[in-house]
């Protein structure tokens, strides 16, 4: 982990996130969101969790961002009055951020990252299939139910 990489990725990712939150055009915000997600995946790589970084890219950049872009295109005729911005939200966000930073800076945490062996996909698979096999099945069931529910929600009503 190097500090230079951390700072560069942090600037990249936060710029993408701020653009995603404040861009007036929805499609530009969705594309900035992709930048922010790639930055977050780079953080996972920096932290030594390569598998989570790859999952982040596959799921968020590959699926969620494409889903958001499709939804924007399907609801396209409603674009004119979307640039309204409520400054009360900015005040709340800054207040939450300052209290979080205050709490983080007043907490004693371990500073140095211990040396570890690289976390291989084999190890993650072993843990998923032994200790976490029931949560894994539950997540599979949840995903199936959620996707069937999404299909039912968007299905055309019969007249």
């Amino acid at each position: 982990m190097s500090a230079a990489a951390f700072i560069v990725i942090a600037i990249f990712m936060l710029a993408g996130a701020v653009a995603a939150a404040t861009m007036p055009r929805l499609i530009h915000a969705a594309l900035s969101l992709v930048v922010a997600f790639i930055g977050i995946a780079a953080f996972y790589f920096l932290l030594g969790a390569e598998f989570v970084g790859l999952v982040q890219i596959f799921v968020y950049v590959g699926a969620v961002a494409v889903l958001i872009v499709f939804t924007i295109l399907l609801t396209r005729r409603d674009q004119e009055n979307t640039s309204g911005f409520n400054w009360g939200g900015a005040v709340v966000a800054i207040a939450v951020f300052s209290s979080l930073v205050w709490a983080i800076l007043h907490t004693r945490v371990s500073e140095a990252a211990p040396q570890i062996d690289p976390l291989t996909v084999k190890r993650i698979g072993e843990v998923l299939m032994t200790n976490y096999v029931w949560p894994l099945q539950c997540v599979g069931l949840l995903l199936t139910a959620a996707l069937i529910g999404a299909l039912i929600l968007v299905a055309e009503e019969k007249r």
């Binding site: 982990m1 190097s2 500090a3 951390f6 942090a10 990712m13 936060l14 996130a17 701020v18 995603a20 939150a21 404040t22 929805l26 915000a29 969705a30 922010a36 977050i40 953080f43 920096l46 932290l47 958001i68 939804t71 924007i72 609801t75 979307t82 309204g84 911005f85 409520n86 400054w87 009360g88 939200g89 900015a90 709340v92 966000a93 800054i94 939450v96 951020f97 979080l100 930073v101 983080i104 800076l105 945490v109 371990s110 500073e111 140095a112 990252a113």
Partner: peptide, 30 residues
Amino acid sequence: TPSLTGFLILSAALFCIGLLAALSRRHAIF
């Protein structure tokens, strides 16, 4: 090397940007 505090402050910033988008935009996709 970056410390845990750096990562925590960074994710706090990311959380607050998300909060800003969720609270201040009027479009459901935002």
